[in-house]
Write a protein that binds this DNA or RNA. Sequence first.
DNA 1: CGTACAATTGACGAGATTCAATCTTAGTGG
DNA 2: CCACTAAGATTGAATCTCGTCAATTGTACG
Lengths: 241, 241
Amino acid sequence: MPHQKLIERLLAVSRLSKSEQNALVGLPYAVRNLADGDIVVHQGDRSSCCTVLMSGFLSRQRVISERNQISAFYVPGDIPDLHSLHVPIIDHDLCSTGPSTIATVSHVALRQLLRDFPALTYALWGETVIQAAIYRNWVENLGARAALPRVAHLLCELATRLQQVGLASGGRMNLPFTQGDLADACGLSTVHINRTIQELRRRRLIDWQSQTLELLERVELEFIAEFNQDYLLGRPSLAQH
Amino acid sequence: MPHQKLIERLLAVSRLSKSEQNALVGLPYAVRNLADGDIVVHQGDRSSCCTVLMSGFLSRQRVISERNQISAFYVPGDIPDLHSLHVPIIDHDLCSTGPSTIATVSHVALRQLLRDFPALTYALWGETVIQAAIYRNWVENLGARAALPRVAHLLCELATRLQQVGLASGGRMNLPFTQGDLADACGLSTVHINRTIQELRRRRLIDWQSQTLELLERVELEFIAEFNQDYLLGRPSLAQH
DNA sequence: CGTACAATTGACGAGATTCAATCTTAGTGG
DNA sequence: CCACTAAGATTGAATCTCGTCAATTGTACG
């Protein structure tokens, strides 16, 4: 399987031996470049391979009540359709937000790998556990937070995930999202997202221009968002106590 | 591990050999009875065992922005804290809604079992995949649907999950939830939940009294909710084509 | 330099919240 | 068996957050 970012992520979450890492690296894969808006997998497709995001961003989206709802963003190192190994019918569009690069690995090859290295099964299960925790936090975000803390929470999450794979330092990151994308993810209208972002700017909490987002007052922002990064760390045990 | 409902669920999702089923059944466990409102696991606890819900309902909840947000309901056969095997620090309260019975299985015993029967690792991973799909649907529900379809969708989901374990037939089920519980799950106020339920009653879509919910016009209700049960089935492949 | 798309702004409306009161129901003790 | 109590369900009124509509401005790209 490709790419150091995935290995980085998995190592952050699980302990993998050198041979397991090598087996991952040795997986056959195909690389594909995507442009903004390209759809990787369509809703209804039957999938026979998994996708590893190598660079850029993907989003999972589906039209609900005539509204395009984004239910997940993916950053490099993520495997957005890992679940297709269990449930091959895809029920969302997976699409590139900004240009991106992906690698695809066939289910067949992946299953063989997991048979040979059971610890990898466990490690990938751990990936699913973290993805579930992210969804859970989105549920809370959409269910309980007003617009400002809701947007703040999403930005904190993205910043932390990008940091984990070395794509954000000092709170600065490249983010090719439009305000419409944010609106679709936060369950708000573009108009209201616009006003919310302006408010975040006015309070000097963020700086966002020409696809570069900078979190200016990280502590204050995380306070407003009630953000706690523990759910993104596979091993909070190391961060605690 | 205890209980036929879990086996039923796992069999619905994965193929398990007799010996694997027997190994599951043979796991040592402790049974506990809970009263309404009892907390199984507290936010912040370090968990050393997993919980299998045998009867009744559990809910996962946490206070977000001074609001109690429920991010999941669990029905018999579910393992609400399966993820604690990977991330032992629990970041939500898990509490009994109505009386319930649970069985606890130590992580140690479970890990040993998974070492002996790799197929069970895969099967439990599949459980996590389904739980993630449920979260994803909640994200969409909270992000995109107005109150009426939102409540309808939740009721359809619960009915389907209860059906899977034989606890709902003909759309009738025992449901010990208060309107406040629904409100916490749907991200709405109790007042608005009340009005929404009245509207569902007025349209003769549901009948709900003395803890018994009946879905009267299932097709119509699912249409309003845009509900599709595929995400709850581990093997949509069998339901399709 | 025009075109298309994203961002911004203002005015208005609707869905949902809040507050507060009342009604209903189930459980309790006398 | 019934009054008493507490929790849940219901109702009305006022309010507010956020959505919709529609127009305008800004910006990247050919």
